[in-house]
Simulated assay, not measured.
Amino acid sequence: MTDYTNNSFPEGRQEFTINYSERELSVWVEKEGNILHLHLDNNTFADLEIQQDDSLKQISGPELPASTVDFIRRKVLENEAGDSGRGSGI
């Protein structure tokens, strides 16, 4: 696997929360090369592949809404330090 992106998220783990169906869920993402291993509330697991244009393509796990994947992309790859953690709003 080659990590060909220019994002600022280093190898390792990042934790945050999102709002999903009016519930706050804990999320942690672990980056390994160009793969993000996603854990939502310790009961949903998915892998997202970072594409050359920094978009994310889901490659395993239950299908996540596009808005959730986009929120994760912005949170992790753009490293939104000022985000209040309120989530994707879905």
Score class of each variant (00 low, 15 high):
P65I: 11
K57T: 04
V69K: 04
S67E: 13
V69W: 01
R86W: 08
D70W: 00
L64G: 00
P65R: 13
I72K: 02
N79A: 09
E63M: 08
L64P: 00
Q58A: 02
A66G: 09
Q58H: 03
K75M: 10
R74L: 12
I59P: 05
I59Y: 04
E78T: 03
V76C: 02
G87T: 07
N79R: 09
A66D: 11
S55P: 10
I59W: 01
I59F: 04
A66V: 09
K57M: 13
A66M: 15
F71M: 04
L64N: 02
K75S: 03
S84G: 15
A81Q: 06
K75I: 00
R74W: 04
R74Q: 09
D70H: 02
E80L: 12
S55R: 13
P65F: 12
A66L: 15
G87H: 01
G61R: 04
I59S: 03
Q58M: 10
R74A: 11
S84V: 15
G85T: 05
S67H: 12
R73V: 00
Q58V: 03
S84C: 14
L56A: 01
K75R: 11
A66W: 03
T68K: 06
I59Q: 11
Q58L: 05
I59M: 10
I72F: 05
K75L: 06
N79V: 13
G82V: 09
V76M: 02
L56F: 02
